[in-house]
Write a protein that binds this DNA or RNA. Structure first.
Lengths: 169, 169
DNA sequence: TATTGTTATACTCTATAACTATA
DNA sequence: TATAGTTATAGAGTATAACAATA
């Protein structure tokens, strides 16, 4: 198999740039390439084995955690998919019989989506397979490495959230 | 700003599953949500400020590092974009005058793409802005955290590559 | 008037397979 | 025959804005 080349790091080639200043950039590029590597394989398997996409899987996962269902707006926020696109995503899943949408009588503007029994079963099957794939792809990591990585990624995420919050204000 | 909910971790809800076994899965879900969070912002800014996409930026970055240019096949491998889609990506960039494709006379099956002067200038501007965005989004991290994160991500990537290599064999 | 969700639109990406030309 | 790249096609994701129903 071909050895993949190192990711981006293009700025390191620029004149007079000190590596220390580019650590954040390198981190981002590595985050991106690592995620893309794993994501493409997961996407491929979801498609081949379940005819599903990652955003669909994500939406189902959110609903799986909430037996009461979720408003589409909340679903939109959790999946980071815009409101307009949640509709299309939900359309496909509803057409497949995996979710059901119902108008909330207390406030008829609100629509709540929840898993059908079929959707729950389908998701559990997918989630189990998915878990196995990840175990396979992350097989070489030991527990300590995983813990450290988890903690560092939490920091990265918090930093980004905080920066985005400052922008959104 | 709204506090985002924790990512997936749906299996933790399943009965009888021990957290220790799910560390890999949690790591992947966090990797995915963290990347998505940053990626959406980067994509948005690339689009708004430069009318560019991330795959386009990535392609330009690869060429920037190779003044001699790259074969489309090599470009395909480095950007993790399939051969057929590299053509369309290159079409748009060539139409914008950012890259140029030339047939290699030594082997007329081969096409080499390289940045035009305009492409080089455009990329440098974009890369500089991009670097600033990342610095902003990663502002809360200190140097040690970054180094550790870089190292752990390298492990993750190596593990995935190694697993994919086993699959590809 | 503000909010929730839908519709409409446009573009890009992603994946696969068939095809052309060159070797 | 094999390789490099293109073309064709289909489907989905992504983003924006306008819109309808409801509050």
């Amino acid at each position: 198999m071909n050895e993949l080349p190192p990711a981006g790091d293009f700025e390191l080639l620029a004149r007079g740039v000190r590596p220390r200043q580019n650590a954040r950039l390198r981190l981002w590029l590595r985050l991106l390439s690592t995620t893309k590597l794993v994501m493409q394989e997961i996407r491929r398997r979801l498609r081949v084995e379940f005819d599903a996409t990652l955003p669909q899987f994500d939406l189902l996962a959110q609903l799986y955690r909430e037996p009461e269902g979720l408003r589409l707006g909340e679903l939109s926020r959790r999946t980071m998919v815009t409101n307009g696109n949640i509709t299309g995503l939900a359309d496909r899943l509803e057409a497949d019989g995996l979710i059901r949408r119902e108008t909330l009588e207390a406030d008829r503007r609100v629509t709540v989506a929840r898993l059908t029994r079929k959707g729950r079963d389908a998701f559990m099957t997918m989630a189990k397979a998915h878990e196995g794939w990840i175990r396979e792809l992350m097989a070489d990591l030991n527990d300590d490495e995983i813990d450290v990585a988890l903690a560092r990624l939490a920091s990265v995420k918090n930093s980004a959230r905080s920066a985005l919050g400052r922008i959104g204000e």
